[in-house]
Write a protein that binds this DNA or RNA. Structure first.
Length: 739
RNA sequence: GCGCGAUUAGCUCAGUUGGUAGAGCAACUCGUUUACACCGAGAAGGUCGGGGGUUCGAGCCCCUCAUCGCGCACCA
């Protein structure tokens, strides 16, 4: 059967007669926003959109790594932040959202190394300079992709303030921060056992360790026949570096040996073993005695420091043995382990071999098993009292910022994780043996060293070859992006920032480090609210990852299919802070339909209010007045929820009201009134008021379709009557208030 | 080992200070009424993981157990 044609006697725009097409709309709308300049708060002030003395609202975008393209996780972060920013801008605040990218030192370097590997090139073949050129080229390409993607996602970022963690300004910030910390003796260089990644050939911080449970063999044996105590270990190969055996001070079995030294030969290596007492030894585990290898275990290193023991390195940076003659030297640790285990059996020294589960630390980036090694590295002291900060340590500064409620973490339960992490925090190792990143601003000459922003004068000064942990520069992000160390107007206006929105997986890596840097360097918090989102998962709950093959869910594909507005709604509704989000294509499709529903409702309203006389006072009949009251109370509720970061609730209420109250009840009711000529003016007024209000309130959630509709409401943007001045864009329209 | 979270309609999840259980999707029945079939109307569907406690009243607070997931941790 033929469907009756919409007669369009009121000459509605052609595009409004067809179903809504995000693909034909979104790019055009984004360009209009960019051209307007309203992503930049300065422009809003110039044009009188925002008052110069208005309250500020600022967010720094967690800078995506320049390691490739944006994924759904990035899309989620862009959506949540864009909603906040659009809402705050409509409230009339000086609203700034700063974009940027992160050089992501190790991650980017290893990515490029892998690409070069495919070409059969090693980074050592290229040399430092040529290699860095390749990395920078790669980083630039990634950057361009990322920027384009962010724009596709509708992010209302102020591109005029874009920053990069490795650009010139940020380099000055990094060096200034380094120098100040060095001068305050918070940064120091020390030889100690660190986490060595044999694959990445660099030291990594404690936070970059990932523990993996593995099967291991626990060997129980004596070093030699007349040694009085048996020890247990999973790593016999390190025992050639042993200098002591530690027992619990109260252990009756071993007390009599404490303080004695025994010498002998273990697998061809001469050892001198002193029996020491340490509270940390668990009498119940193994034999209750522990072989101490100061060079290859952090715990043992500390025992050695306390007891003044010698440190004997036996493993090198490549995970190979450096002692033991022909039998062991040059062998990989795993091989040496078997050789020693066999030797123990052959010698009749092996007493027990037990299969156990063991947590081994691996490197987050390379997956390699960490080899603890003693090395000279740079550290940040987290316990030293700082005179300029009321003698508080960095640890205390981090703690106080949150415990004082100056910084609020959403959801609140992450407070506990944060405090727990701080309590267990040890000095932060900030040097890395990689090429890509901020080179440590320290120069050496004949045993002399110089720390500064610029290289010292004179030829012979040699800069430290190491680079800084990428989180050092990231820690400065809230203020380095605003111009620090210069005293800029931006810094005065927009810092502390209002909200930091990111995934809970980088609470320690990044959020804690930003709090550290900001409270120390500026004496103020970096942000007031931390909003932590969960991880985006596939519809079946699986983690999206390349190895599972479902990381192929490209946000741009979804946008091409259903539109950005639909993706946004699917990412916001049903999503609460801290909880993972299952992204289901059905939901996205559903919200795509909602966009069309809004579109069609607009067609109906515009067609019916074409002859509405705006000079006449708005007079509503009883039921329409009730509807208006309901609308007002909806807006009040939604506003409260927006202020409390409850975007899911707010979005869902707007969705539901639009569809099931405005469309299903009010529009349907108006048809009867208009066709019967009963309370026609009231019916038209309520159509108009509802549509106007809902389009505005929906804008932060669905910016494209609402802006597009807004542009088709000629001279209707003031309730009082037709506007005569040039039409404003919806992004700078005032957030609706209940009348 | 310590800590955290989840467990609510078939599925995915909301539920803000304790006050008569909600949404979306799916499924069911009916309906093409000129904004929209990317639609409408209607009905159906839950002893809120188990057990105990506090309370006039508990999805929500307390205790306990179970299952799943996550974070942290120097049992060698």
């Amino acid at each position: 059967m033929e469907k009756p044609q919409f007669d369009n006697k009121n000459n509605l725009p052609d595009k409004l007669l067809k179903p809504y097409s995000p693909a034909d709309t979104e790019d055009r709308i984004y360009s209009a926003w960019e051209t307007s300049g309203y992503f930049n708060p300065d422009r809003c002030i110039e044009d009188g959109v925002t008052k110069a003395d208005a309250e500020h609202f600022s967010i720094v975008l967690p800078p995506p790594n320049v390691t490739g393209t944006l994924h759904t996780g990035h899309a989620l972060m862009l959506v949540i932040q864009d909603i906040m920013v659009r809402y705050q801008r409509m409230l009339g605040k000086k609203t700034l959202w700063i974009p940027g990218t992160d050089h992501a030192a190790i991650a980017t370097q290893s990515k490029v190394e892998k690409l070069l590997e495919k070409e059969g090139i090693r980074k050592s073949d290229l040399g430092r300079e040529a290699f860095l050129k390749r990395v920078e080229q790669f980083a630039q390409e990634s950057h361009d992709t990322i920027v384009n993607q962010a724009k596709k996602m509708g992010a209302s970022l102020d591109w005029s303030r874009e920053a990069y963690t490795l650009d010139e300004k940020r380099t000055v910030a990094v060096r200034t921060a380094f120098k100040q910390m060095y001068d305050d003796e918070l940064i120091y260089r020390k030889y100690r056992v660190i986490n060595w990644d044999p694959k990445g050939q660099t030291v990594i911080s404690d936070d970059e360790l990932v523990y993996e449970e593995r099967d291991a063999m626990l060997y129980t044996f004596k070093y030699w026949k007349d040694f009085p105590i048996s020890i247990s270990t999973t790593r016999p190969e390190t025992k050639v570096g042993d200098v002591a055996v530690a027992v619990h001070p109260d252990d009756a079995r071993y007390q009599k040996f404490i303080g004695q030294t025994f010498t002998g030969t273990f697998c061809g290596v001469d050892l001198s073993i002193t029996i020491i007492a340490d509270q940390g030894v668990e009498p119940e585990f193994g034999t209750g005695a522990l072989g101490v290898t100061p060079a290859h275990s952090k715990v043992d290193w500390e025992m050695a420091q306390k007891n003044n023991l010698e440190v004997i390195p036996v493993i090198n940076e490549f995970g190979k043995m450096t002692v033991g003659g022909e039998k062991l030297e040059g062998k990989k640790t795993a091989e040496a382990r078997d050789i020693i285990a066999q030797w123990l059996r052959d010698e009749g020294l092996m007493e027990k071999e037990d299969k156990i589960k063991q947590n081994v630390s691996t490197a987050e980036r390379t997956g390699a098993i960490i080899e603890p090694l003693p090395k000279l590295q740079w550290f940040i002291d987290v316990n030293k009292p700082i005179a300029a900060r009321e003698n508080k340590s960095l640890k205390q500064l981090m703690q106080d910022a949150v415990s004082s409620k100056e910084i609020e973490i959403l959801p609140e339960r992450f407070d506990k994780n944060y405090f727990y992490w701080i309590n267990n925090l040890q000095d932060w190792c900030i040097s890395r043996q990689i090429w890509f990143g901020h080179r440590i601003p320290v120069w050496y000459k004949n045993g002399e060293s110089y720390v500064g922003i610029e290289a010292p004068a004179g030829e012979e000064w040699e800069q430290d070859p190491d680079t800084l942990d990428t989180w050092f520069s990231a820690g400065l992000w809230t203020f380095s992006t605003l111009g620090w160390p210069e005293k800029t107007k931006d810094l005065a206006t927009y810092h502390p920032t209002s909200v930091l929105e990111t995934g809970h997986d980088i609470l320690f890596f990044w959020i804690a480090r930003m709090i550290l840097m900001s409270t120390y360097l500026l004496g103020e918090i970096p942000f007031k609210t931390v909003y932590l989102h969960g991880m985006v998962r596939a519809a079946n709950g699986q983690k999206m990852s390349k190895s599972l093959g479902n990381a192929a869910v490209d946000p741009l594909d979804i946008i091409a299919k259903y539109g950005n507005d639909a993706l946004r709604m699917a990412m916001i509704i049903g999503n609460t802070p801290g909880n993972d989000l299952k992204l289901d294509e059905n939901d996205i499709r559903g919200y795509g339909k909602f966009g069309n529903k809004i579109w069609n409702a607009t067609r109906f309203v515009l067609d019916n209010i074409a002859d509405l006389d705006f000079d006449e006072a708005c007079q509503l009949d009883a039921e329409d007045q009730i509807s208006l009251d309901e609308l007002n109370s909806l807006i009040t509720t939604v506003t409260t929820e927006m202020n409390e970061f409850k975007f899911s609730l707010a979005g869902e209420k707007l969705y539901h009201h639009f569809w099931h109250t405005f469309a299903d009840v009010i529009i349907e009711r108006s048809k009867t009134k208009i066709s019967e000529g009963r309370n026609v003016s009231s019916a038209k007024w309520i159509l108009y008021l509802e549509l106007m209000t809902l389009i505005k309130a929906l804008h932060p959630f669905m910016p494209f379709v609402t802006e597009e509709i807004w542009s088709m409401l000629p001279a209707l943007n003031e309730v009082e009557g037709p506007a005569t001045d040039a039409k404003k864009l919806l992004i700078i329209e005032a957030w609706p208030t209940s009348a």
